[in-house]
Design a binder for these strands. Structure first.
Lengths: 211, 211
DNA sequence: TTATATCTCAGACTATAGACTGAGAGCATA
DNA sequence: TATGCTCTCAGTCTATAGTCTGAGATATAA
């Protein structure tokens, strides 16, 4: 195999420079571009068509998730490696579903990241142990997200509850009767397996449903 | 002025390596140590007594805030520069109150960070524009956090509400009568300027009071 | 000592939330 | 056509939440 063409997308200047500097000591890897936002990154990748992309998740302009989706859709052979600080469910699974090839944490050593790039180019996935653990538990118990059972309307009601609205206020906001609101609320409480609206509000916030 | 002795504390290997690599091209700066956690970092700094410290905020073992407090207390002449990804109120102000000398974001360029290190050694504070903006607004309108008015007990009750507990449950948990709980809840609602416990729970979550 | 703040609790009352049953209308699918 | 799901709403009932007033105990500061 010849040179591995790599693009780095990260809004942290020091991270880009750090990775680039280190990877320059690796003969097989050739950094052909850098970008500091999701939009810019996706554009650059679609133009440069690199073998591998190192992608941050949280960026000012266009998230790494969206960028990854675009890239994977347009260039199925391009391997996107997520490189981020986060390993909570809200970040990991959307990223993997978006088509990320590997998932590394910024706490990884530079060596490990270089290794992950080479393996990606070679078709091998690398998943950080912490992230791998999450995947395992999800595999074992498909950990159904309770709110997946909510209907569209029920989800709207839940969001209202999460914003602290009373039934009367929800009734006005959604242009439905207060009785109907109560029905929806009851269904929401049952489906989320909670006892009252306060717990439902907590659920909505903890699961990141509030925008 | 002779060499500036610098310690880097960050649990991200790539960040440490990136900064170090770049700063090695700066003659005036000498990186005399690295650490990957708050505890380790504070220990190292107290031993090495550097002129300047670059400190991450969010780390696995001991936060940058605690480390900064220890360092500033023991070595008042040591300048701690916060270097992090966050610029929300919950992070910025505690860091500044802990005695941070400058506050930089990881989105800053390597040049800017090098510049901040030199200025710190020279006694000049550098505050990222985004962070500076927050400081200005806080100066203008001291932006009182409503929950600052809560008494200790009321805060405990609020946390319980934020966890979705009913008055009866709070009563059991705190070993007080349900009437007393109601009194506290009423006071909490008034002080937070909200109408019911659900809104109070939302407040607690949005203000980051939940652990 | 007086004043102030906190924590505790009671009684009485009103408002809201939530459970349960039942039901009609619309829509999609087998 | 029959079945099932969703959204809508009514009536009834109970439980919980929340307000307001008042008050005793303790601790601390002026």
């Amino acid at each position: 195999m010849s040179q591995i063409r790599l693009v780095i997308v990260d809004d942290h200047d020091v991270v880009r420079k750090g990775i680039k500097t280190y990877l320059m000591t690796e003969d097989e890897i050739d950094v052909v571009g850098e970008a500091s936002s999701g939009h810019e990154g996706a554009d650059l990748v679609l133009k440069e068509k690199p073998d591998v992309v190192l992608m941050d998740l949280i960026m000012d302009n266009g998230t790494g998730i969206e960028a990854t989706e675009r890239i994977v859709e347009q260039l199925p052979d391009c391997k996107v490696i997520i490189l981020t600080s986060y390993y909570d469910d809200e970040k990991v699974f959307p990223a993997l579903e978006a088509g990320a090839f590997s998932y590394m944490l910024k706490t990884s050593s530079a060596d490990e990241i270089a290794e992950a790039v080479k393996k990606a180019a070679n078709g091998e996935n690398v998943i950080e142990p912490k992230v791998a653990g999450k995947m395992m538990t999800r595999m074992r118990a498909p950990e159904k997200q309770l709110h997946e059972d909510l209907t569209q309307r029920e989800l709207e009601v839940l969001i209202c509850i999460g914003n602290g609205l009373t039934n009367a206020e929800i009734s006005e906001k959604l242009f439905i009767g207060i009785k109907t609101v109560k029905t929806h609320v009851s269904h929401v409480l049952h489906k989320l397996e909670v006892q009252d609206r306060t717990q439902a509000a907590v659920y909505a916030h903890q699961k990141g449903l509030m925008k």
